[in-house]
Write a protein that binds this DNA or RNA. Sequence first.
DNA 1: AACGATACGGAGCACTGTTCCGTTTTGTCA
DNA 2: TGACAAAACGGAACAGTGCTCCGTATCGTT
Lengths: 197, 197
Amino acid sequence: MAAADQPGKAPARSKRADALRNQQALLTAAAEVFVASGVDAPVREIAARAGVGMGTIYRHFPTRADLVVAVYRHQVEACAEAGPRLLAEAPSPFEALRGWVDLFVDFLVTKHGLAEALRSDGGFEALHAYFLERLVPVCAELLGAAAGAGEIRPGTGAYELMRGIGNLCAGRGDDPDYDPRRLVGLLLRGLRRSPEA
Amino acid sequence: MAAADQPGKAPARSKRADALRNQQALLTAAAEVFVASGVDAPVREIAARAGVGMGTIYRHFPTRADLVVAVYRHQVEACAEAGPRLLAEAPSPFEALRGWVDLFVDFLVTKHGLAEALRSDGGFEALHAYFLERLVPVCAELLGAAAGAGEIRPGTGAYELMRGIGNLCAGRGDDPDYDPRRLVGLLLRGLRRSPEA
DNA sequence: AACGATACGGAGCACTGTTCCGTTTTGTCA
DNA sequence: TGACAAAACGGAACAGTGCTCCGTATCGTT
């Protein structure tokens, strides 16, 4: 359902040279276009910038979500791996959770339009699925640790929290009167068992 | 910039009879289509259901936001008017705020797609503007009262809070693992000065 | 009844996503 | 090296949007 054959970075797998070259070109072009115009940029624009035809882009990345996933795979991976590390390093599970959430929020607000793509209503099911598959377990671990330490109230699931955070980060990021980080902070605070120091 | 001449409900103002009739038909049709297909339904569908042409719909409601505003005017108004009433009736300003937020959330989750339209990134600036113009002052009053009573921490603006709530309510509503109300509750709890009873 | 103002309708344009298939490139094998 | 089949390419073509434009019909008034 997702990316057919791990269209990751370097050696995709035993295919023709031109195919590999084009796949790489598409990844590069998509990354550029995404920062310039957001993840909703016209398919044609990406194809044109990569110097390939429409057929090629759809052959390599059947859905837009596949392309987005491929482009941001590294960062999602980094975010996933940061979870256990923070848990080990931070002074408390809740602090680890807070740190991880900061990372996640940074990631989302940095990529124009990513947060809205993350919600499930669009045609980005694959993206939604991948993000959640990879990150929900990490978040769940952090949440569980914090709950185990008695730092937060139970009852909120990792999926719910992540989607809430994603939602809070959606919309134009250049609004001086709307700071997603502040609201996410409030959300986390609402999760705490006792008030802040 | 918004609705040219208050395309409200009954007597719009000194215009031709057929124009009034069509405006009414459009409002009715739009309301029906909105519940069936969300506020993003194709313009043609609304026009067809109202039995009018494309030109007519655009003449009466230059932007989609104008139409949405006209359709939901009553409910927005009711929500706005509930603010002062709750403030007078509720046992405390914070409870009033909580009650009002519940109303707002109910409104948003009930109208498929309204919450996403509320964010500023789409072409719904007029909708965004109207909602905010009408409801932000109300929210600000509630927020101010609660802050004055020492029930919440200062520093969060009404606009920010409302947009956050709107964001939390966006996305498909039929997901059993995502309850906007719960998260909004968490947000409110994060706003409180001391923890819940 | 006639006539000017007002409003109507829908064809048409621009711009999307997506598919389809004739053509080109690549790698291999004689 | 020179076929040749498989793999991949490219972009025209189709379908579904939003929105505009202007010839035509309707309304209200004189």
